[in-house]
Write a protein that binds this DNA or RNA. Structure first.
Lengths: 154, 154
DNA sequence: GCCGGATCGTTGGCGTGCAAACGGATTTTG
DNA sequence: CAAAATCCGTTTGCACGCCAACGATCCGGC
């Protein structure tokens, strides 16, 4: 048997038609998807030629130095299948170079090329602007708190 | 040994940010992507058999009644190409029915079937739990504020 | 009327994302 | 040392998600 003290708002109703119980516009998942869409659009407008994931991989590679492919994937929150495609496209454009690891024959060691490093440097200022523009609808005082909370959801 | 702290490459930044500090883990886009990943995992575990987008489309259809395909796409923040695939899959499973609009021969009028409505009802409680679980890392008092801010970014 | 612009749904292409399965290399452990 | 457990990168298959282009239809203005 159920507790009678459960809240009304989200409780399943026995006999009636609940209907307005689930409001899509208030669900985290939906809002996350929409915020992501807007961010993607801002990014694409500010940095054409590099997707956010490609830029993230390149940035990490510049930040951390040479990495194995899967390690780079972990550092950028992409699974092995996803990072492969991203790296393939970066390699095809000469932004990332690959070499076999002599100490572990399974591994591929990736590193940013000169062109890759230059592309990262060239895009960095724009990337900061993208982040700022994305957060623009929030009051300045809210932004850090929002980022902190968002980070906790990851 | 390397000078890692006072590294100032070819980016002349007079008085502004030192430009070296592009920290991926603090960028909104990256955090949004990671939060989305976690939410997706929670959703998939709680509601196997329906993706968040499919559930969103079904929910909107139950909420708003019969809609044209593109109108449903707008109501769920999906472009025409995306909503088509989602609707195709829902139709293939008998959760959504389609009929031509006699008043406008371009349009397809979509409606949830009995099975579709039942699937929505059956999943609704779980969907609420998904939202709650996603927000679980936040203190109860923070959640509403977070959602409000997130909504403003959409 | 009719014509130009909007809207409707469709298609193709590209780029994430995840799951599952695989063969090869390496490490752990019995 | 050999078997088992891991880890590496790859592939396939599916599901978004956006863009650009398209034929069909509708609608506004002339």
């Amino acid at each position: 048997m159920k507790d009678a003290k459960t809240d009304r708002p989200a409780a399943p109703e026995p006999g009636g038609s609940p209907a307005q119980d689930y409001v899509l516009d208030r669900q985290v998942g939906f809002l996350l998807r929409r915020a992501n869409q807007r961010h993607l659009a801002i990014f694409a407008a500010a940095i054409p030629g590099l997707t956010p994931t490609q830029f993230a991989a390149l940035a990490r590679l510049c930040e951390l130095g040479p990495q194995s492919q899967n390690a780079l994937g972990r550092a950028t929150a992409m699974d092995a299948a996803t990072i492969k495609g991203v790296v393939d496209r970066l390699r095809a454009r000469g932004l990332v170079a690959a070499a076999r690891d002599p100490g572990d024959r399974r591994r591929i060691v990736l590193a940013a090329t000169e062109a890759g490093r230059a592309a990262f440097e060239a895009a960095r200022a724009a990337a900061h602007r993208v982040s700022a523009d994305t957060l623009a609808p929030l009051a300045p005082g809210e932004r850090q708190a929002f980022l902190d909370m968002l980070a906790r959801l990851g």
